[in-house]
Design a protein around this nucleic acid. Structure first.
Length: 259
DNA sequence: ATGTCTCTGTTCCAGAGA
C-alpha cells in the first residue's frame, strides 16, 4: 500500500498537477491540505474518474482537507471532538477515514503566525485536540497514521538555517513538545528520503528562489503507529512535484507499506 | 525588498494569509 500527503495550496488551482501526480505515483491513499474551496466546489468527478473515492472537508478561501482513496473510504470523520475554534469558528483542518484497514487522518495544523499571537495559542490548543484524538482512536492492533502539514519542523536539521528562525514559529519548544507527546502516545515520525541534497524538505517558500536554493523546511509529516512503521518499505519526498510553474509550495510525501 | 502565489470582495486592483 502506498500512502501520501500533499499540501496543494488550492485544489482548484492545482487540479491538473494533482491528476497527473495521481496517475504517475498511483498512491492508494492521498491526504490533501489547503483545499481553499467549499465541498460543493471540490473537483471530485475528475478525481473519481481515476478510480478514487473522495471525502473532503472544506469551507471558504482558507484551510480545507481531504482524503482520496482507491482502497475504500469508510468511517469518515470531519474534525476532532472538542476541536478548538479561532475567532469563534472551527476551521476545516482535520478529516479521518479508514482506507483498506488503515485509519488515516489528513491534518492541516494552524500556522501560528508568531509566538505570542492568538493564532499560536490556537495552534497549541489544536495540537492538544489532535493528541486527544490519537489517544481515543489509536489501537495497536490497527494501522494508524496522521499525515499532513504539521507546520512544525521537528528538529533544527529540518530547516535550512536554524539561525534564521530565532523567535519564529515552527521551531519553538512548545510546538516540538506537542510532537513529542504524539511520540509518547505511540506514534513515530516516518522519516522520508530526500531525492536530492541531504535533507528531505517538504516545503519551500515561493519567494526569494527558495526552491532552487534549497532553502526548505520539513513540516509535512507522517506520524504512524507501530503497525504501520513495521510495514514501511520506503518513504520519500517527491520534490519533482515542486518544480516549474504552477507548483504548490509543498511537495508530496510518499510512504510505501507491505500492508 | 515580504522579491510569490492564491483567494475574495471593496474587482479589472488591494488586502490577507501563508
Amino acid at each position: 500500500m502506498r500512502l501520501a500527503t500533499w499540501n496543494v495550496n488550492s485544489i482548484t488551482a492545482r487540479l491538473p498537477r494533482v491528476l497527473a501526480w495521481l496517475e504517475a505515483a498511483r498512491p492508494d491513499v492521498l491526504c490533501l491540505q489547503e483545499l481553499k474551496c467549499d465541498d460543493e466546489a471540490f473537483p471530485r468527478e475528475a478525481i473519481e474518474e481515476l478510480g478514487y473515492d473522495v471525502a473532503s472537508h472544506g469551507a471558504g478561501r482558507w484551510n480545507g482537507v481531504a482524503v482520496l482513496s482507491r482502497v475504500g473510504l469508510d468511517d469518515v470523520t470531519r474534525g476532532f471532538v472538542d476541536e478548538p475554534a479561532y475567532d469563534d469558528a472551527v476551521q476545516p483542518r482535520a478529516l479521518g477515514a479508514t482506507c483498506g484497514g488503515v485509519r488515516v487522518w489528513s491534518v492541516y495544523v494552524p500556522n501560528g503566525r508568531e509566538p505570542g499571537h492568538a493564532h499560536y495559542d490556537y495552534k497549541l490548543r489544536w495540537l492538544d485536540a489532535l493528541h486527544s484524538t490519537v489517544l481515543a482512536e489509536d489501537d495497536p492492533a490497527r494501522p494508524f497514521a496522521v499525515l499532513g502539514d504539521f507546520n512544525i519542523a521537528p528538529t533544527d536539521d529540518d530547516v535550512w538555517d536554524i539561525a534564521l528562525f530565532a523567535d519564529s514559529t515552527h521551531v519553538t519548544a512548545p510546538e516540538r513538545a506537542a510532537l513529542a507527546v504524539l511520540r509518547d502516545a505511540g506514534l513515530s515520525d516516518v522519516y522520508p528520503r530526500a531525492l536530492k541534497y541531504d535533507r528531505p524538505y517538504t516545503y519551500w517558500d515561493y519567494r526569494q528562489l527558495a526552491f532552487p536554493k534549497n532553502r526548505g523546511m520539513r513540516i509535512d509529516l507522517v506520524y504512524a503507529n507501530k503497525a504501520v512503521t513495521d510495514a514501511v518499505t520506503d518513504s520519500y519526498v517527491d520534490r519533482e512535484a515542486r518544480k516549474g510553474k504552477g507548483a504548490s509550495d509543498h511537495a508530496p510525501v510518499v510512504v510505501d507499506l507491505t500492508l
